[in-house]
Each structure stands twice: as C-alpha cells, then as structure tokens.
Amino acid sequence: FLTKYFNKQPYPTRREIEKLAASLWLWKSDIASHFSNKRKK
C-alpha cells in the first residue's frame, strides 16, 4: 500500500503523513523514513 502511494506521491505533505500513520497504525516517523528511504533508491 505504501509503495503504491509512494509511486503517486513521492513527497507527501505533513497532513498526508498523519493520515497514513493514523490509517495504518504506524508512527509518523516510520512513514516519513519509509518515504525517504524509497526516494534514495
């Protein structure tokens, strides 16, 4: 799911990160680090 979202929006806003974190029961920092790691590849 996160990879699909990343393909659409590689630079999510803070609000989008909060929404993703809430819906996936993850920490915002986990979401942010996932996106930054994907951008590095």
Rank of each mutant, 00 (worst) to 15 (best):
R39M: 14
T3M: 03
Y5E: 01
S33C: 10
F6G: 02
F35R: 06
I17S: 02
Q9Y: 02
S36D: 07
H34P: 12
S33V: 04
K40G: 10
K38L: 06
R14G: 03
R39P: 05
E18Y: 03
N7H: 03
S36L: 04
K8G: 05
D30G: 11
F1W: 02
I31V: 15
F6A: 05
Q9R: 13
I17Y: 09
W27H: 08
L26K: 15
P10S: 13
S36Q: 10
K40L: 03
S29V: 04
S36P: 10
T3C: 02
K40A: 12
F35Y: 05
H34Q: 11
I31D: 12
S29D: 09
K38S: 06
F1V: 03
N37Q: 08
K8P: 00
R15H: 03
K4V: 00
F35C: 03
L26M: 14
I31E: 05
T3W: 01
E16F: 15
S36F: 10
K28A: 15
F1L: 00
E18K: 15
S36H: 12
F35P: 05
R14F: 03
W25Q: 13
K19E: 05
F35A: 08
R14M: 11
K38R: 09
I31T: 10
K38T: 05
A22W: 06
P10A: 09
I17V: 11
K8M: 01
T13H: 08
R14L: 08
K38H: 09
P10G: 08
K4S: 01
E18P: 06
S33N: 04
Y11V: 13
R15T: 12
R15S: 11
P12W: 05
K28M: 15
R39H: 05
S29Q: 15
Y5L: 04
P12E: 13
S23T: 10
T13I: 14
L2V: 03
K38V: 08
H34N: 09
L24M: 15
N37S: 11
Q9M: 09
T3R: 08
A21M: 14
A22D: 05
P12C: 02
Y5V: 02
N7P: 12
W27R: 12
S36T: 13
K19N: 08
I31W: 08
K41D: 11
N7L: 00
I17F: 06
S23H: 09
P12K: 13
K4T: 00
Y5H: 15
N7T: 05
W25G: 13
K8D: 03
E16G: 11
E18G: 08
I31C: 10
A21C: 09
H34I: 13
Q9S: 08
R39W: 12
K38D: 04
W27N: 04
L2N: 02
R15D: 04
W27K: 13
K41L: 03
K41I: 04
A22Q: 13
F6V: 03
L20R: 08
P10R: 10
F35Q: 05
R15Y: 03
A22F: 01
F6H: 01
L2C: 01
Q9H: 10
D30H: 08
W25P: 07
L24S: 02
T13D: 05
E18C: 05
K41C: 04
E16D: 12
W25F: 07
E16P: 15
W27I: 06
T13V: 14
S23P: 08
Y5N: 02
K41N: 07
K28Y: 02
W25V: 14
L26C: 11
S36K: 13
K38E: 03
R39L: 13
A32C: 14
W25N: 11
W27Y: 05
W27F: 09
A32S: 06
T13L: 14
T13W: 15
K8C: 00
N7D: 11
W27L: 11
K8L: 00
P12G: 14
E16C: 14
K19H: 02
F35H: 05
L20F: 13
S36G: 14
T3Q: 07
N37L: 13
L2F: 14
K40C: 09
F1G: 01
W27T: 07
S36M: 11
K40P: 04
E16T: 10
L2P: 02
I31H: 08
L20S: 05
T3N: 15
T3E: 10
F6R: 07
A21L: 10
N37C: 12
S23W: 09
E16L: 06
S36A: 10
T13G: 15
Y11P: 08
F6P: 00
K19R: 09
K19V: 02
W27E: 01
W27M: 11
W27C: 06
P12A: 13
A22L: 03
E18A: 11
E18M: 14
T3I: 02
Q9K: 11
S29H: 14
P12Y: 01
N37F: 11
I17H: 05
K38G: 09
R15K: 14
I31A: 14
L20I: 12
T13M: 15
R39S: 10
K40V: 02
S23D: 12
F35L: 11
A21P: 04
K38M: 09
I31N: 07
K28W: 14
R14P: 03
K8E: 01
R15W: 03
F35G: 09
A32M: 13
P10Y: 07
N7R: 07
R15N: 07
H34G: 11
H34M: 13
T3D: 04
D30R: 11
R39F: 07
E16K: 14
A22R: 11
I17R: 04
K28Q: 06
A32L: 12
L24F: 06
K28D: 02
S29I: 13
D30Q: 12
Y11F: 06
S36C: 12
H34W: 13
N37H: 10
N7K: 12
Y11S: 15
F6M: 06
F1S: 09
R39E: 05
P12L: 05
A32G: 10
I31P: 09
W25L: 14
H34Y: 07
R14W: 04
R14D: 00
E18S: 06
K28I: 15
L2R: 01
N7W: 00
S33Y: 03
F35D: 07
E16I: 12
L2T: 01
N37G: 12
S36I: 09
P12F: 03
L20W: 15
E18W: 03
K8H: 00
Q9A: 04
L20T: 09
E18V: 02
Q9L: 07
F6K: 09
K19G: 05
L24D: 11
F1M: 07
P10F: 09
E16N: 06
S33A: 12
H34R: 10
F1D: 01
K28R: 06
S29L: 07
N7F: 00
Q9G: 08
T3S: 12
W27S: 10
E18F: 01
K19F: 00
K8Q: 00
K41E: 09
K28H: 02
W27V: 10
S29R: 09
N37Y: 12
S33L: 07
T13C: 05
D30S: 05
Y5C: 15
K38C: 06
Y11T: 14
W27Q: 02
W25S: 14
R14K: 10
P12T: 08
A22Y: 04
K28P: 15
N37P: 09
K38W: 05
A22P: 04
D30K: 14
D30Y: 10
N37A: 09
T13E: 03
S23F: 01
K41W: 15
L2E: 00
K40M: 10
A22M: 10
S36R: 14
W27G: 13
T3P: 00
I17N: 01
L26R: 15
S23G: 06
L26H: 15
N7A: 07
L24Q: 01
L2Y: 05
E16Y: 09
Y11K: 14
A21G: 15
S33R: 13
T3H: 03
A22I: 03
A21R: 11
K4P: 00
L26G: 14
K38I: 06
S33I: 07
N37M: 12
F1P: 03
S29M: 08
A32P: 03
P12Q: 11
F35W: 09
K19P: 00
Q9C: 11
L2A: 01
K28F: 15
S33E: 07
F6N: 01
P12S: 09
K41S: 05
Y11W: 12
E18Q: 13
K38N: 04
I31S: 07
K40W: 08
N37W: 12
R39I: 11
